Simulated scan of single mutants.
Amino acid sequence: MSVLLSCHWNFVGIIITLSLGPSLPGRADDSTGEYYSWQYDNSHVRFNSKQTQCMDIPMDLRLCYNVGYQRMRLPNLLDHETLPEVRQQASSWVPLLAKRCHADTQLFLCSLFAPVCLDRPIYPCRSLCEAVRDSCAPVMESYGFPWPEMLKCDKFPIDNDLCITVQFSDPKNTPQPGPNNICPPCDNELKTDILRDQFCASDFVVKLKIKETTTENGDRKLLTRKRKKILKLGTLNKRELREMVIYLKNGSTCQCHQLDQHQNDFLIMGRKVAHKFILTFIHKWERKSMSLRSFKYFHCPSFHSTFQ
């Protein structure tokens, strides 16, 4: 038996196709707002009873505000119970959308971070998780992050259960990363919203000059000059920034045209991963479109990152 869940997705105008299996391990009681959520975990269904509420998706939840529906439920399907927690955890994923690693990335992530407000929770199908993971994990790895445990695909239901399926299976809609592509941290549009999203997802942001680049174990190694203008320090100290060496993950197998001319000033953003400074964003400093003052007005959530 099959059933169609009609949602007006603004960004593609799709209909989510759901497959209904012989049993539905979950129910809702709208009179009390209580539901029993279900998750797949090593082939075992796990039940949780929590009070739920429906609310409008706020404009500052940038990952999902334009996903195509207006109402979400809390707790969400990742057990985030408050909007401030959802905002912060979701903000770590916003830069991934700009990389367009898979056409269903927003659909998959928002089904978990901001699930549509229906009479029962609807999880993404395992096949949807696997499709997004296979396309986006290489991009995440270029930033020094593995696919997180909380999104392990075998936790999600198989396609003959009630779940959200893949919408874009056409390869032309999903660019595949390869050795001839531009390195993800080097492929950025200079737009205010992209700068803000990258700024908030980064541990450090600096304006600097690069002294030289070398390769090391397949990564590109950036030796920086000591003089830097700190725009965001995060949990790092000034001595770490002054002596930092930055790594572009897998940089020896992809293109980064910004590194062809070291005499330029660069806007550099990155994260500290396992005692290494990993490059997540690089762009030539553009005086006409960048100002040091503008970065002071970027307000970011203060919770811990999803990836830590």
Rank of each mutant, 00 (worst) to 15 (best):
residue 209 K to H: 14
residue 53 Q to D: 06
residue 168 F to P: 01
residue 250 N to H: 12
residue 205 V to W: 02
residue 253 T to F: 09
residue 283 H to D: 03
residue 24 L to K: 05
residue 35 Y to T: 09
residue 95 P to Y: 03
residue 248 L to P: 02
residue 84 P to K: 12
residue 150 M to G: 00
residue 83 L to A: 05
residue 144 G to M: 06
residue 19 S to G: 11
residue 121 P to F: 07
residue 297 Y to T: 10
residue 219 D to W: 09
residue 187 D to G: 02
residue 62 R to E: 11
residue 270 G to W: 02
residue 4 L to M: 10
residue 224 T to H: 01
residue 87 R to C: 00
residue 288 K to V: 02
residue 126 R to I: 03
residue 262 H to I: 14
residue 278 I to M: 13
residue 221 K to W: 04
residue 75 P to C: 05
residue 221 K to V: 15
residue 105 T to P: 01
residue 183 C to H: 11
residue 108 F to I: 02
residue 107 L to S: 03
residue 294 S to L: 10
residue 174 T to C: 15
residue 75 P to E: 06
residue 292 L to P: 01
residue 220 R to C: 14
residue 87 R to N: 05
residue 38 W to V: 08
residue 230 I to M: 07
residue 184 P to S: 09
residue 44 H to P: 00
residue 78 L to C: 02
residue 211 K to A: 12
residue 263 Q to P: 00
residue 286 E to Y: 08
residue 275 H to Q: 14
residue 287 R to Y: 12
residue 92 S to N: 15
residue 160 N to D: 14
residue 251 G to T: 08
residue 281 F to W: 13
residue 44 H to N: 15
residue 110 C to D: 05
residue 229 K to P: 00
residue 207 K to W: 04
residue 92 S to L: 00
residue 40 Y to H: 05
residue 279 L to A: 03
residue 118 L to E: 07
residue 32 T to Q: 10
residue 86 V to N: 02
residue 198 Q to G: 02
residue 98 A to D: 12
residue 7 C to S: 13
residue 289 S to C: 01
residue 174 T to V: 12
residue 97 L to K: 07
residue 108 F to G: 00
residue 259 L to G: 06
residue 110 C to Y: 06
residue 137 A to L: 11
residue 145 F to Q: 04
residue 139 V to W: 03
residue 56 D to N: 14
residue 98 A to N: 08
residue 161 D to I: 02
residue 279 L to M: 10
residue 66 N to A: 13
residue 133 R to N: 11
residue 302 S to N: 13
residue 229 K to G: 08
residue 50 K to E: 15
residue 277 F to V: 04
residue 170 D to R: 10
residue 263 Q to F: 08
residue 306 T to F: 09
residue 152 K to T: 14
residue 157 P to R: 03
residue 88 Q to E: 05
residue 2 S to P: 04
residue 136 C to A: 10
residue 187 D to I: 00
